[in-house]
Design a protein around this nucleic acid. Sequence first.
RNA 1: UGGGGUGUCGCCAAGUUGGUAAGGCAUCAGAUUUUGAUUCUGACAUGCGUUGGUUCGAGUCCAGCCACCCCAGCCA
Length: 579
Amino acid sequence: MTDTSNPDHTLPSHFIRHMIDHDLASGKHDGRVQTRFPPEPNGFLHIGHAKSICLNFGLAEQYQGACNMRFDDTNPEKESQEFIDAIKADVNWLGFKWHGEVRYTSAYFQQLFDFALQLIRNGKAYVCSLTPEQAREYRGSLTEPGRNSPYRERSFEENLELFLRMQKGEFADGEHSLRAKIDMSSPNINMRDPIIYRIRNVEHHQTGDYWKVYPMYDYAHCISDALEHITHSLCTLEFEDHRPLYDWILNNLTLDSLKNACLELGNLPDDINYVLPEQTEFARLNINYNVMSKRKLKELVELGLVNGWDDPRMPTLSGLRRRGFTPASIRRFCDIIGMSRSESIVDVGMLEHCIREDLDEHSARAMCVLRPLKVTLINFTDEQAQTLSLPRHPKRDIGNRQIQFGPTLYIDETDFEQTPPPGYKRLSPGDEVRLRGAYVIKCEDVIRDQNGKVIELLCSLDPATLGQNPQGRKVKGVIHWVPAEGALRAEVRIYDRLFNNANPDDKALGDFKNSLNPDSLQVLTDCLVEPSLASAAAEESFQFEREGYFCVDRFDSRPDALVFNRTVSLRDSWTKTNG
RNA sequence: UGGGGUGUCGCCAAGUUGGUAAGGCAUCAGAUUUUGAUUCUGACAUGCGUUGGUUCGAGUCCAGCCACCCCAGCCA
């Protein structure tokens, strides 16, 4: 049901595509496009990652290149196999195929270590024994240059011996570090002798307890890209200042050693020329009424403010999936938001537009009464009951469904008003309305309980209105209904935005949790759905007519106890202007 | 007060070597409609952060301002 190839949707142009077109035209990068998606397995993927995934995999598809899937797992303390599995599942779900096997930066630890030895040998790196606090002092500030570490001029022999001993586990965490010898007075703080290896006496989820030293991102990432002969290394804007370091590392290693390591790993087909990767940055995705930082999402999960990473209110891919978003809708969203270098906040309405667009075309229609109100037809008997056949989609022929129509049925409480406001097109005393796909009925009487609450409507039916309009008068409204006979009870979870404030990240608002919407989840347990939904499959989406798009909860729904999640409501120009 | 970036319609975002402001979302108005949905039609920046300059002509070139974002983790 997810057609991702809509011919009307031409690929929008953006600066990265322009750059690649230019690269290809000039023969740069050997005329190849090799990208990679490199998440750290320390959390779940969110819609912001989808932007990067669509970019990297999309570019590879468009230019007949390839995109690698690589776990940037250089910090074992924060990572786990659970996240690796979840991330792979999310990328698969989005429908992208990575090139070859899944890669791990940790699989390059030996090569990375050897390259560090090369830097040490060439006087480009040294073991520093400053404490973390001292290192911070020596680094200087934004406006003041740093000072050279007293350990900066250690001999090659001493550096080599110390680094080897670091890996042997002879030192405690933080006792020493390996630093690139660049320039402590650089205005770019990333170039002030950055630490490239630190001691971590912990177990790594992939390599066990073999390694005692772990490479830092800046050191490992560029080399990993080189080892996979990536051509275009795409990342977000905050890494812009790291680009000079990315280039410094690669340029201070011999091209031959990089190429040979790439060859030894079996990553380099012999029909291509080896070229170094280049980093390009783009703006990360922000969506209003949402938070997109892994730290904040993690906090919501750990404090129990949401029901896990895949809570349908979360902007995580697993949350969106459970909410009922389709891969096609997310890919489409990533296409239409564009790609630029300016920080921006995309309106969540764009995301909603994308899922409505997809579901309107692909999902079957059904009727569901969220808050049942009994209706008894006073001029219709059990003997007259009949089976109605209604199309599953108003425009596409995807079959019909059957519904029993008898003397008692249910409509939604909100579709009846004792004293209708101007412009009201639903049911009210003495007025007519059409039951969708069935007859026109007229409200003759209202039954209330001792508190005055309306509990039943007595209506008359016009037998001449099945499939045709009544004579001499116009019935303005159509409402949905469900038969008393055969309707299924269901739980429906109505989700609203997780945050009340358009920008929960706004520092002026204090903690982002202050903006949490207390009514983001409303559970309705006495809903009634039409009988045809008995066979609904997990994750299947439906449009509950006049209400919105809903999907069968992939974990909690059972055939005898259906659970639906509201993905998004229908556009509604009535309640929008009438409360 | 250092360095690196960004500023085009309410929100995203195109704008080839300067030639007279795409598109989408949202919004508003109308038509169709057994979903107040969908679909269709129309409206929606003499204006491109700002001030000057160059030019026959500037969003596009130059200069100066202003605003916002990122960087001082042995995180990524």
